[in-house]
């Protein structure tokens, strides 16, 4: 009988399985395990894993920390094409804070190639999406949470941060910048 009628045999559990069907199941099972192991393996041996370091924070506290870094390490005022945002060049290894707000990424950082920074991400209002281009690394950014991501830029250049979480009518204007020297 077909799939729209009850099985013809009262006990169908003991029917033998077709050889090719069984082979396919075995292959699919092995492939499933390989894919599972890949994720675990990358945590051990891979160079790109999203950090699990997250803290509950407040908008005020996060903004104050960002302001402190900006006050300390600003190297120049941005041009008009940089929205006149401060351009900040903190030393390698330091904590840097990036604010997502309607509709900016603030401030602009200048980083050194091959050096590691602790990038803190948080939003001031709605959720935003950190989308680093043309690398194409994408991270969700939440308000009231401080997400600490260790980043090590491996190529110099000018990078844009596009917002890719819908955040209202000006969403498409929300673009920030990171320079890597």
């Amino acid at each position: 009988m077909s799939a729209i009628s009850p099985p013809a045999e009262r006990i169908w559990w003991k029917q033998p399985i077709d050889k090719l069907e069984f082979t396919w199941i075995a292959i699919a099972f092995v492939w499933s395990l390989v894919m599972f192991v890949m994720m675990v393996y990358w945590h051990v041996a891979g160079g790109q894993n999203l950090s699990n370091e997250t803290y509950k924070t407040t908008k005020e506290m996060f903004a104050a920390k960002a302001q402190a870094v900006v006050d300390k390490y600003t190297v120049r005022a941005g041009t008009a094409a940089e929205k006149e945002f401060p351009v900040v060049a903190p030393p390698a290894g330091s904590d840097i804070y990036l604010i997502g707000r309607l509709w900016d990424w603030w401030p602009i950082y200048e980083l050194e190639k091959g050096k590691t920074y602790k990038l803190h991400l948080s939003a001031m209002d709605y959720m935003h999406g950190f989308s680093l281009q043309p690398q194409n690394i994408n991270i969700q950014v939440h308000p009231n949470y401080d997400h600490v991501v260790k980043i090590t830029p491996n190529q110099s250049g000018t990078y844009s941060i596009v917002c890719n979480e819908y955040c209202g009518i000006g969403h498409h204007t929300m673009v920030g910048r990171i320079y890597v020297k």
Binding site: E9, R10, I11, W12, W13, K14
Partner: peptide
């Protein structure tokens, strides 16, 4: 005879 056989657990 089939009618008498117990239904396997997984089928149940």
């Amino acid at each position: 005879a089939d009618q008498e056989e117990r239904v396997p657990v997984m089928q149940q």
